[in-house]
Nucleic acid binder design. Sequence first.
RNA 1: GGCGUUAUGGUGUAACUGGUUAACACGUCGCCCUCUCAAGGCGAAGAGUCCGGGUUCGAGCCCCGGUAACGCUACCA
Length: 499
Amino acid sequence: MNPETDKEIRVRIAPSPTGDPHVGTAYIGLLNYLYANQRAGKFILRIEDTDRARFVATSEQQIFDSLRWIGLTWDEGPDVGGPYGPYRQSERTEIYREHVQILLANGSAYRSFETAEELEAMRKSQLAAKLPPRYNGAHRELTAEQIAAFEAEGRPSVIRLKVPAEGETAFRDELRGEIKFSHNNVDDQVLMKSDGFPTYHLANVVDDHLMHITDVIRAEEWISSTPKHVLLYRAFGWHLPRFWHMPLLRNIDKSKISKRKNPVSLIYYQQAGFLPQALLNFLGLMGGGMPAPTEKNDTAEIFTLPQALQQFDFNKISLGGPVFDLVKLKWLNGEYLRKLTPEQFFDELKRTTFADDYLRALVPLIQTRIETLAQVGDVAAFLFTDEIKPTPDLFIPKKRTLEETLAFTAELLIALEAADWTHTGLDLAIRTLGTEKEWSVKENFMLLRAILTGSTQSPPLLESMEVFGRARTIDRIRRFLTRELEAQKRAANQKPKPA
RNA sequence: GGCGUUAUGGUGUAACUGGUUAACACGUCGCCCUCUCAAGGCGAAGAGUCCGGGUUCGAGCCCCGGUAACGCUACCA
């Protein structure tokens, strides 16, 4: 009997409530779910809300809802409880404070008193000298007197990991084998911020240990910080979990998937009419793991969660970063839609696109604008369509060029993403930007109206945006921008070079 | 720049411990069906496996050296 290999498998996902629930969270969630449930283990959801600057209050509930929507359920978490709670890091600050004391006491961490400005200056000068930007270790060996002096000054401090000056840290990645990092390349990571909250690195290691996590299954982007985590486990004298780093989902251009280039919000997929089982199925296709179809008309690519549970093989994961291809996802979604009975199809429509709440919200926008009920499509079609393609004569205001318009749209997109999604919030964002960039309210609204509705006439814009929803509105603008930018580039390339 | 990871058609994946003309799906194109458009059926094009060496009777799979892409390089996760 080996106590290490025979103990109960426990895995976790640890999303941060910093914005819309992310498709990458669902992907890693699916893998963790499969891993745990294939081994009669436990799948845990932990909320990593230690970044109070980026914290979004509504985000946590959206994470719960989206993950459940896609069909994943967890055995322990903030909303379902469990034996190793609390499962929200903001409620565990005392635990981190105690643990960081252990590190301080045994010499594997130290207090550091530089201000953010000083660190920024340090980084800049290192960069200028073409050196790798790293903490210079100035406060690694402060005496008790020096520390007292800084404290007397009232200087805030952080606590950093004291990475050994020499040697290297190696660890095993279950999919790649041994990976090593020379300590020259491992920075003295901040473990505890001056606001008293831990960073990911500390909180993650402490929680994983306290929650008896046996396998850390996370995205590839974490590989380079894994040596810091290993050092922490050692400093505490704890056993290492197994590490599995999964390939990163990519945009079409192969960069890490991002909202700039791809819809990543699970709320978007929900509202844009994707079936959760199709999205889940599609994510299961990313990075291998499932038996591949090999004969003509082989339907091995289409599977349910229970089938994935049966067939998914972690040894078959392929490590190249898979492109998240919306075209294939749509095909798959279509397959699922076609398989529904007409009655089920009707139910899906009623639940999403034609949901009562959605229709009710749209009533005030159209009631005064139509004379027969049959005209609803005339004024509200843009709310029931996937793509709007306004022509340049429609979206470019008089006295503006295409270039100006697209540049402004890019700014507008950023402003709207940051805006409070209410009538007044949107109004404020749009008008503020307009003043800043000297775009009249009229130009501003005309552009947005063209992008969103494909017409010069529509129900009131801001209210329409509220009804249509943040995720889909943002996506529509983003797609418009990408499309037009590409068209512009193509046009430029076709122009004969001046002799 | 430094460090790390990865590399099979446009995209997602296959190819048992090295073994025949590198397979399937999406996409693209064509044909059939059909009032149209889809769906469905049939078919085609598209990679010689990042590049260069090596080992071997034989390499997508093994070895060496490059290259490129991506990730990390925060008091973000």
